[in-house]
Design a protein around this nucleic acid. Structure first.
Length: 226
DNA sequence: CGTATTTGACCTGCGC
DNA sequence: GCGCAGGTCAAATACG
């Protein structure tokens, strides 16, 4: 079943929470609690779900090895800022931090696994810009052998492009649902081909495709976040 | 045979 | 205006 726990803090412009992934998913994950981040309408409206199997291991440089060896981490890029989620397997604690361009942590907060969806992040408002308004976009990088991560939606590939200064092509996908204009790009990091960068653009107008019996719960989640 | 993917051509935005 | 790079289209091809 698709269960979720969601908090909305009136004073906060965004939110961080958890939900449990459906047990019969294609990712080989059973009833696992996963983190998500959603931003409400005052900022960007984004949602990402980060299955543990997609969460890359930390770099194993000598300085970090002893402290973070068993930790899991993932990153979500959003404008100039990076939200870093980290799970310690030692004490089952999740933490997030907002990181600037120089990888310095601006904010950091930890919370218990048992505290479902109780943390919120205050985000800066997006600066007004002369640029053409685009659909909300966000991306995250994961360490994975497979390029296309199963996020519950059905995608059709519509293009592939060689990217300059990298030997790995970028693939373009569109959501197969009628009237849904969500797109995603998938590419591998030039510096580290083990890392997959997935970029989503737009907003789904429906529930994940292999989650139909739980569509009501899912759409409630979507309505709240989107 | 219907659907999904591949791939070269075309379009668009941007910097010079 | 020109060239380049990224993004999209659509005909051809592959696949179940």
């Amino acid at each position: 079943m698709f269960s979720q726990s969601l908090f909305e803090d009136q004073d906060m412009s965004s939110q961080l929470g958890f939900f449990s992934f459906p047990p019969n998913n294609n990712m080989g994950i059973s009833s696992t609690t996963l983190p998500f981040i959603g931003y409400n309408q005052n900022t960007l409206k984004t949602l990402t779900m980060i299955p543990p199997s997609f969460v890359p291991s930390l770099d194993h440089s000598p300085n970090n090895e002893s402290r973070h060896k068993e930790d899991l981490t993932t990153s979500i890029f959003r404008g100039p800022h990076l939200i870093s989620l980290r799970k310690s397997t030692a004490n089952n604690t999740w933490a997030w931090g907002e990181v600037n361009e120089n990888s310095n942590i601006i904010k950091r907060r930890e919370f218990d696994h048992d505290h479902l969806g109780v943390s919120s992040i205050k985000m800066k408002k997006i600066k007004s810009s002369r640029r053409k308004v685009r659909d909300p976009r966000f991306c995250f990088k994961t360490m994975s052998d497979v390029d296309v991560l199963d996020d519950g939606y059905k995608w059709r590939k519509y293009g592939q492009k060689d990217v300059k200064n990298t030997q790995h092509p970028r693939s373009y996908y569109r959501c197969t649902q009628d009237n849904c204009r969500v797109k995603k790009r998938v590419e591998r990091l030039a510096e580290d081909p083990r890392m997959v960068i997935t970029t989503y653009e737009g907003r789904h107008v429906h529930s994940p495709s292999h989650d139909e019996e739980d569509s009501q719960a899912s759409s409630q989640l979507n309505n709240l976040l989107w």
